[in-house]
Design a protein around this nucleic acid. Sequence first.
RNA 1: GCGCCCGUAGCUCAGUUGGAUAGAGCAUCCGCCUUCUAAGCGGAUGGUCGGGGGUUCGAAUCCUCCCGGGCGCGCCA
Length: 561
Amino acid sequence: MKQQLSELIQQALNSLIAQGVLPADSSPNIQIDRTRDPSHGDLASNIALTLAKAAGKKPRQLAEEICAALPESNFVASTEVAGPGFINFFLSSDSSQAVVKRILEQGTAFGTNQDGGGRKVQVEFVSANPTGPLHVGHGRGAAVGDSLCRLLRASGWDVASEFYYNDAGAQISNLALSVQARCKGLEPDSEHWPADGYRGDYIKDVAQAYMAGSSVAAEDRQVVGAADSDDLDAIRDFAVAYLRREQDLDLKAFAVHFDRYFLESSLYDSGEVEATVEHLVANGHTYEQDGALWLRTTDFGDDKDRVMRKREGGYTYFLPDVAYHLNKWQRGFERVINEQGADHHSTVTRVRAGLQALQKGIPEGWPDYVLHQMVTVMRDGEEVKLSKRAGSYLTLRDLIDEVGRDATRYFLVARGASSQITFDIDLALSQSNDNPVYYIQYAHARVCSMLRKLEESGEQWQMEAGLAQLELLTEEHETALLRQLDRYPEIVAAAARNSEPHTVATYLRELAADFHTYYNAHKMLIDDSNLRNARLALSAAVKQVIHNGLDLLGVSAPESM
RNA sequence: GCGCCCGUAGCUCAGUUGGAUAGAGCAUCCGCCUUCUAAGCGGAUGGUCGGGGGUUCGAAUCCUCCCGGGCGCGCCA
């Protein structure tokens, strides 16, 4: 619709240029917005405001001339000049009602677009190390990242989701030592407890399973406990598998799927870490100091240089990070989005700098990052502290068990990633209006309920008849809904383009509100079958869009509540 | 001290990427169930968009300087 309007305006501008009203070199990008206020029409353009100066005319006068030059069109009912010089477009009722037909014909495909053009994009998210269960912060990453994948898929991208985890560094050593300590019967208070050990009770569970010779099957591996408290390698392998399985269960409960789990250790096994070092050295961006090997990342925008190889010989996490991203690039992902907690934001410039130092033609701003801020969890009016090493530990699965998957996902994805959020368990548990997800789902269930009710009375909703009678939808609440429905494809496209899934949640809240208002103002199961079929067609369209939108958020659309 | 994020109604947050009179939910107050699910609807109250400058036809939005909060600033990840 915007596209068509844009063409109309362009034609008008062309004829004004031909008349000499506008300078020949004026080629503005034509901006068209949806109006906030229906009295301003359906769409509006500020074109006259931006061109007024070049034309040497007052904006309103120029707007009048543009309106006069607009070609006839069957989808614009009228235009008017308003305010400082906006051109407001009122769509014909035919064209605004047609959205219902498009929705019902396209079904789940309505709202999708081809912006991605089949190009490959990779989304990396969660990427928690296997040192403990997933917490609410990971949940936010999972909700945002998975929704992002769904949005990109809906926008024509070839999406690959990936979970990267460190199974080679110091944290894993600490994990192994902690489990070993538990195997030997030590408690965290003991003087022999490992210095940076993990103190949580779940470590005891791991140790018990290991000593019992349990078999553990994770998404990407299977391990049997060796029951030998002196075999640290066996303990490590078992602990990693055990905690990986726990995370698998967390993610499954959250309905989040990954196409691939990428192990840091594989970068060592394949020699990619070593090759990356050699390449950086060969490029002359490194130097030795204090017995360590440094990369001069300050040449690429970092605020200080970074150590790649420690004095004692091992690599820092930074180097495998660079090797990993080179690996992504070489796999052909021209677009990569890393969804992470903002507490790791310092890696952004570092990784990009490392990639630039490789001189492989990787674009400067590659990859993209979506950083989510912290989640504070409240219970009984008090903050729940989430320390992995301390005792009390609220896991993502606890939360899902307590408040439900839909509410948890919705809450974590409904707000902009860059704002800190408070997850109030009591509020989420209250099953009241405080849970907007129910409000949206209820709108969906209401439509289902009406259709059921109609069938129970021996009637059927006739879609074709409804679509043939859309002209009957002239009530104010109906035109408001039509306007709202028409926005949906733009919402999806913008959310995917800007990596902002929360805008879909905001939109669905508004759509549901418009529907509830409509539902209360007008009766749909009426004797007049033409009007009934038309109203049910509109309602079914709302149902479809809510279904599609909730699916993008990973939230279910129940038929009854 | 340096870097990134944030500051919008009493509370939680939106704000269509610079547009017209700044919105929603919760809370408070007043109404609506013999009518398709009241997990709903209607109305009222509530704001110097943290503050000062600047950019322009036009700023919550962009620039700058302050104030306040969060997170980083390891040869941890």
